Simulated assay, not measured.
Amino acid sequence: MATWDLSNTNHHILICNGSSCNRAGAEELTQAIRKEISNRELDDIIHTTRTRCNGRCHDKCVVIHYPKGAWYRDLKPEDAPLLIDSLCADEDYTEKVSHSYDGQRFERSFGVIAGVPKDKEKVNKVSKKL
């Protein structure tokens, strides 16, 4: 396993490769993002990590950008150039943002489902109300 020198890294892209995202094309998305980074010779400043499920299966395919804290939804391989453009411009790819971090908490974008609470007690209360 390689140990990458991250001293010049400005962006860390986490690409969900959990089962729901995989069925929706996560492997193709992962390869498209990595190819775009390589073609632009940005490997030194943009690091990618393939993850397992990030818990937002409804938003598949999910990509998370740190240190900004932006979560992206419904990404397809053809979105790779626009995503990388947005990183290079230090902007969000706003059309695909599901959640953004304001420095204190995550804000959900309009039209994005809230999901279920992580706390099992809250989940049980929600289930009983339904």
Score class of each variant (00 low, 15 high):
Val97Trp: 03
Pro67Asn: 02
Tyr66Lys: 01
Cys57Asp: 03
His99Asn: 09
Arg50Ile: 14
Trp71Glu: 01
Lys96Ala: 14
Gly55Asn: 10
Asp102Asn: 14
Trp71Phe: 04
Cys53Ala: 06
Tyr93Thr: 10
Ser100Pro: 03
Arg105Met: 10
Thr51Leu: 01
Cys53Gly: 04
Asp79Cys: 00
Pro117Trp: 03
His47Asn: 15
Asn124Ile: 05
Tyr101Gly: 01
Ser109Met: 12
Pro77Lys: 07
Cys53Tyr: 05
Tyr101Lys: 03
Ile113Gly: 06
Glu107Phe: 03
Glu91Leu: 13
Leu75Asn: 04
Lys60Asp: 05
Leu87Trp: 01
Leu83Ser: 02
Gln104Tyr: 13
Ile84Phe: 06
Gly111Pro: 06
Lys96Cys: 11
Tyr93Lys: 06
Ile64Gly: 04
Asp79Lys: 00
Asn54Ile: 15
Val97Tyr: 05
Tyr101Ser: 02
His58Pro: 01
Asp90Gly: 13
Asp85Ile: 01
His58Asp: 09
Lys125Ala: 02
Asp90Ile: 11
Asp102Ile: 11
Leu82Trp: 02
Asp102Val: 12
His65Asn: 13
Gly111Thr: 06
Pro81Thr: 09
Asn124Ser: 09
Val112Arg: 12
Thr51Val: 02
Ser100Arg: 14
Leu82Gly: 07
Gly103Arg: 06
Leu83Tyr: 02
Asp102Leu: 08
Thr94Val: 14
Gly115Tyr: 07
Cys57Arg: 11
Lys76Val: 08
Thr51Gly: 00
Asp102Tyr: 09
Ala80Leu: 02
His99Thr: 08
Lys118Phe: 05
Asp90Trp: 11
Val116Asn: 07
Lys68Arg: 14
Tyr101Arg: 04
Tyr93Asn: 07
His65Pro: 05
Tyr66Trp: 06
His99Met: 11
Ser86His: 06
Arg56Ala: 13
Ser109Thr: 15
Asp102Ala: 04
Thr49Ser: 15
Val62Lys: 00
Thr49Tyr: 06
Arg50Asn: 15
Tyr93Pro: 01
Val123Phe: 01
Ala80Trp: 05
Thr94Phe: 04
Asn124Asp: 06
Leu83Pro: 00
Leu75Met: 11
Cys53Glu: 03
Trp71Gln: 00
Arg50His: 14
Asp90Ala: 15
Ala70Asp: 10
Cys88Trp: 06
Ser98Trp: 03
Thr48Ile: 14
Val62Gln: 00
Ala114Val: 13
Cys61Gln: 11
Arg108Tyr: 06
Cys53Asp: 02
Pro67Ile: 10
His58Lys: 09
Glu91Arg: 13
Thr48Lys: 09
Gly103Met: 06
Glu78His: 10
His47Ser: 13
Gly55His: 11
Arg52Gly: 13
Ser109Cys: 12
Pro77Gly: 03
Arg56Gln: 15
Tyr93Ile: 08
Cys88Met: 15
Ala70Thr: 13
Lys68Trp: 08
Glu78Gly: 09
Asp119Phe: 00
Cys57Ser: 07
Asn54Tyr: 14
Asn124Ala: 10
Thr48Phe: 07
Gly111Met: 03
Val62Met: 02
Gly55Leu: 13
Leu83Thr: 02
Glu95Tyr: 09
Gly103Asp: 03
Leu87Pro: 01
Leu83Arg: 00
Leu75Tyr: 12
His65Arg: 11
